[in-house]
């Protein structure tokens, strides 16, 4: 039985459609990423799967149970970390963990092995108030709290938003550890570059899933030629490329311009165009971000 099965889920809030016909499945012990910008519907989808919302249409089963009828079972067996860290800022690190252990009728000692690696990194601060922790430490504490009852499935809603790069990197390696324990992880993020850390991803935009695949699979579907152009003056070159008839898309990407020419122009024509405009360029491989935009 797959831990998460969503079938044709739609969700409307008054007249706005937050989710439209979402279907997907998550395998056991998989890190499944929902990747998309704010407003794509990631949080709404999470809340439907973890029983906080009822879909307008469609059904979902989590851990083999129906999300509407068997919500109590699901609530006992999943861990959830909402978008904002769900900690009590006036309680200490240890008190927060203890509280969540108590409401799940367990204790820190009982499940220490699961959280040990994560909790060890903040244990030195166990008497500090959660409100005085840095973003990265809050994130580790929130994850420990979500894991304290040994859930079979973990929902992490934008766990890396507002967290610095170092903590983000550490966080992803923790998730890979948890996967070894057989825990299925559903994680959402607005950062395209984090897609690579997932086993499979669903790219979401305006309530739709545009594609579901392994990160490499998504990139391999990009069926255009992509060039990185390195001009002297990025803005001028961008205007030039945008107005050129050869161009399919041209966008700033870091210190370069990611340029996709139309399919019906040959290599020679492209070379000629670049030379005549005095532009340095090289063939580049697309990243998830480029693929995401091509699908939009």
């Amino acid at each position: 039985m797959k831990p998460v099965i969503a079938e044709n889920i739609s969700k409307h809030f008054k007249s706005t459609a937050a989710l439209q016909h979402i279907s997907f499945e998550v395998d056991k012990a998989e890190i499944f990423g929902l990747i998309g910008p704010d407003g794509a519907g990631k949080t709404t989808l999470f809340r439907i799967l973890n029983t906080l919302l009822i879909p307008t249409e469609g059904t979902a089963s989590v851990l083999g149970q129906d999300t509407i009828r068997d919500y109590k079972y699901i609530r006992h067996h999943v861990g959830y970390m909402p978008g904002r860290f769900s900690l009590y800022e006036d309680l200490s690190v240890e008190e927060n963990l203890n509280f969540y252990a108590t409401i799940f009728q367990t204790s820190i000692e009982e499940n220490y092995s699961l959280i040990e690696k994560i909790y060890k990194q903040i244990e030195a601060f166990k008497d500090r108030k959660a409100g005085n922790l840095s973003g990265g430490m809050k994130q580790k504490l929130a994850l420990s709290c979500a894991l304290i009852h040994k859930p079979k499935l973990l929902f992490l809603d934008e766990p890396t938003t507002g967290v610095d790069a170092v903590s983000r990197k550490e966080f992803w390696s923790m998730l890979k550890d948890l996967k070894q324990h057989g825990i299925t992880i559903l994680v959402s993020t607005p950062y395209m570059d984090e897609a690579e850390q997932c086993d499979r991803v669903a790219l979401m935009q305006s309530g739709h899933i545009m594609d579901i695949d392994k990160p490499a699979g998504i990139v391999s579907k990009f069926n255009h030629r992509l060039f990185a152009v390195y001009p002297e003056n990025i803005y001028e070159a961008l205007q030039l490329l945008k107005t050129s008839p050869i161009t399919h898309t041209a966008q700033i990407f870091g210190q370069s311009i990611h340029w996709v020419p139309k399919e019906n122009f040959s290599e020679a024509e492209i070379l000629n165009f670049m030379h005549s405009n005095n532009l340095n360029y090289k063939v580049d491989s697309p990243n998830i971000e480029d693929c995401f935009m091509e699908m939009m």
Partner: peptide, 13 residues
């Protein structure tokens, strides 16, 4: 407001 209610709801409480 703090989002902790969500976690309390998704618990055996």
């Amino acid at each position: 407001e703090m989002g902790t209610m969500e976690v309390l709801l998704i618990s055996p409480l």
